[in-house]
């Protein structure tokens, strides 16, 4: 397993593509670390905000000699954002939440999840089996790269918003089912 800090020199020098390569591993780790807050914060907004903050502070980052330093920092930033958002919305006591234990796991190069290696091989065959309308909704989302609202995407493919979302949901479930039959569990990292 590779230490994600291998990307640090590029990131610290302002190379956004190096940051993108780092995020391929870091983004799922940051997202999974927020599962405890799933009912109290919009995790997508927190993940993106945390990653943007990491990019801003990265030039001043000082490694502590252990692996995955920037990843551990990003998990901590996301955690702090989630705690802050939770306190704004709910009067809840936030006790021990396993953050330190997870950070310790990430302090070894083997502590990072890299997903199922069979997923990439299996998914294209599954996507080809999708019915036309769900495939259209999925392709619209994929090509938008997170830059357009669903209302705009729906209009672009000639669907009502509700129909677009129903088709997208169907595509997701059909892909997951097809992958399960191929022996790939894409939610294993959430367990």
């Amino acid at each position: 397993m590779t230490d994600t800090d291998a990307h640090l020199p590029g990131i610290m020098s302002g190379d956004a593509q190096a940051f993108a390569r780092w995020m391929r591993v870091a983004e799922p780790e940051v997202r999974v670390s927020l599962r405890r807050f799933a009912a109290s914060v919009d995790a997508e907004a927190v993940v993106q905000e945390a990653l943007l903050r990491v990019w801003q502070v990265a030039p001043r980052f000082q490694a502590d000699g252990r692996p995955n330093g920037l990843l551990r920092l990003s998990v901590r930033i996301a955690h702090n954002l989630a705690v802050s958002e939770t306190r704004k919305r709910r009067d809840v006591a936030l006790g021990e939440d396993g953050l330190e234990a997870r950070l310790n796991q990430l302090a070894s190069a083997e502590g990072v999840h890299h997903g199922d290696p069979h997923l990439r091989r299996a998914i294209h065959g599954c996507k080809e089996k999708l019915p036309a309308q769900p495939a259209k909704a999925l392709n619209a989302r994929l090509s938008s790269e997170g830059g357009l609202a669903d209302a705009d995407l729906a209009e672009g493919v000639g669907m009502k918003l509700n129909t677009f979302l129903q088709n997208f949901s169907r595509a997701r479930k059909l892909l997951a089912e097809c992958l399960r039959k191929a022996g790939v569990d894409i939610e294993a990292e959430l367990a």
Binding site: R24, E27, P28, V47, Q48, G115, K127, L142, G146, R172
Partner: peptide, 23 residues
Amino acid sequence: SFQVRRLESALDDDGENSTIKAV
């Protein structure tokens, strides 16, 4: 959302999902 990001990453030539691209 976790599931969708994993699917997006697997379908992208560079392994980058929509969250990464948005950032």
